[in-house]
Design a protein around this nucleic acid. Structure first.
Length: 112
DNA sequence: GACATGACGATTT
DNA sequence: GAAATCGCCATGT
């Protein structure tokens, strides 16, 4: 069948899996890394479907503000914040403290 | 196939 | 500096 159709989802999942522990990245960064093929929204959309795959640390993906926009899509709204805190990331409200410091850019750490 | 929606982002008001 | 607006494009109805 058309594996090409899912190319975007597949790529997004792969990049997300490469995120080191204690780091986070943004939807836009992933989209930019894959190219302009998909906008940041598509990344978020892909993550929505990621709930089918347990291997995807979706909690390490936040929006460009460092806000846990997708926490409500987890098993429990607190799960995302909890997981990040476990990895040494401090959360204030729904926002990551010192976000640029824990930000992981695939373009700077991954080589294609 | 038109209409509405969405885990975003950048720009403008 | 917060709120509103447009652009992005796949997915569901």
């Amino acid at each position: 069948m058309n594996a090409e159709r899912n190319h975007f989802f597949n790529d997004v999942y792969e990049v997300v899996r490469q995120i080191p522990r204690g780091r986070v990245t943004s939807y836009g960064a992933i989209a930019a890394y894959l190219g302009t093929k998909g906008s940041a929204r598509m990344v978020g959309y892909a993550m929505n479907a990621s709930h089918l795959d347990e291997s995807i640390p979706a909690h390490r993906v936040v929006n460009r503000n460092g806000v846990l926009t997708g926490k409500h899509h987890f098993e429990h709204p607190n799960k995302m914040e909890e997981l990040l805190t476990e990895e040494g990331i401090r959360i204030k409200g729904d926002r990551i403290v010192d976000f640029p410091s824990v930000f992981w850019d695939p373009e700077k750490n991954l080589y294609l």
